[in-house]
Structure formats: C-alpha cells, structure tokens
C-alpha cells in the first residue's frame, strides 16, 4: 500500500474502478476464447465449399482494405479520446469519441453492403459450410462493433451529462479496451480470412 495515488493514471485511483477495469480485461480474455472457437470453425470449414464459391471467388479486396483502414483509424481516434480525458479535456474526449463511433458506423455500413452483395449474388450462408463459417465469423465481429457503437453513444451522453467523473473515466477506459480489442480481432480476420483467401 506504499504507492501514492499520484503514481497512478486517473482511471486507477479509485480502488473499485480499478477492480472493474481488471474485470473488463478478464471479460476480453473470454472473448478471445469465443473468437478462437469461431476461427477454428472457419479454418476447418474453409475448404468445404460444396457447390458454392471458394474464398478466392467470393472476396473482393477493395472494400475490405477500405474497411480495415477505417477501423484502424477509429482505433487511433479512440486512443486520442482517452488521451484527451487524461489531459482533462472533456470536449476533446467527447469529440474524438464521436469521431470514433462515426468511423465504426461507416465500417459496419460497408460490411453490411458487402454481405448484401454476396447474398444477392446467390452466395447466402446456407449454400456451404464455408459460407456459414465465413458469415458467422465476420458477422460476430460486426455485431461486436455494433454493440460498441451503441455503447459509445451512451458513453458520449454520459460524458456530456456528468463530465469526467471517476466512473466516466473508467467507462471510457474500458470502452477503449473493447474497441482496440475489436481492432485486433479484425487484424486477424483480415489476415486469416481475407488475405489468406486471396493468396
């Protein structure tokens, strides 16, 4: 108990809030298990295309690269939001948070468009085990991002209403963890699903 409060980042100064941050890290580690299982399903089902398209035939590289760059940028803006909060700049924190959620929304929009295009081209997920695995893996990530957007909206509201309180700082920190985690998941999706599928 020797460390003084000054040594800690603001999110950790309150004991209870620091415990909540740890709990959130643990939650993220269970999500690692969730996505690992889905990746395992995808890896096993990749070649089981039945009469449907192969990964090579299905993927279009352009939109996927755009989605990736958008998500990476949103990860950056999210980190700036947390940075602003730590500099005690409420406006900066809220503004960067809104930029982040807008980027996230455009990512989801692009992804939905891609899905709709696949389905209208007759590549719905019931046509092969591969397609089922692909849509579920990418869709699970997409639904995580969507949940993140809803969360960000509520968080922005709370920041605007109550300012940088102890609780709100922690909430912003955990949101940032969540958002960056989704970015990591996407990097693996991009590499394992899309890039390997194109290669």
């Amino acid at each position: 108990m020797s460390t003084t409060t000054a040594d800690r980042p603001p999110e950790f100064q309150d004991m209870h809030e620091s415990i909540r941050i740890m709990g959130f890290w643990i939650f993220l580690s269970t999500d690692v298990g969730l996505f690992s299982s889905l990746f395992a399903v995808y890896a096993v089902f990749r070649s089981r295309v039945a009469l449907g398209p192969t990964p090579h035939q299905l993927f279009a590289m352009g939109p996927v690269l755009t989605e990736t760059l958008i998500l990476l940028t949103s990860s950056f803006t999210c980190s700036l939001s947390l940075y602003s909060a730590r500099m005690n700049r409420l406006r900066g924190a809220v503004a960067w948070l809104i930029v982040t959620l807008l980027l996230g929304a455009s990512f989801v929009t692009l992804e939905i468009r891609e899905f709709v295009a696949d389905v209208t081209a007759g590549h719905g997920w019931s046509h092969s085990a591969f397609l089922s695995g692909f849509f579920t893996l990418v869709g699970t990530h997409g639904s995580h991002v969507t949940i993140g957007i809803v969360w960000a909206v509520m968080l922005a509201l709370q920041l605007a209403m109550k300012g940088l309180t102890v609780t709100n700082r922690r909430k912003l920190y955990t949101f940032a963890l969540y958002w960056h985690f989704l970015d990591i998941v996407w990097i693996f999706l991009f590499s394992v699903v899309y890039l390997s599928g194109m290669a």
Binding site: R8, P9, E11, F12, M15, S18, I21, M22, W25, I26, L28, S29, T30, V32, G33, F35, S36, S37, F39, A40, S75, F76, C78, S79, A176, L177, H180, F181, D183
Partner: peptide, 27 residues
Amino acid sequence: FMHLREARGTAWHLPVLALALFVGLGI
C-alpha cells in the same frame, strides 16, 4: 493503445490474457 501494463497493484490481467492466448491457439 490498450496500456497493457497499467494496473493498480499487481497486473493480474496479464497471466489471464496469456492463458487466453495459449488456449485460443490451442483451440
């Protein structure tokens, strides 16, 4: 971005994350 090693007291989330990585790769 995620300030991995920030914690109050022992950074207990690190071994849990390491385990998650280990289990995930195993799966």
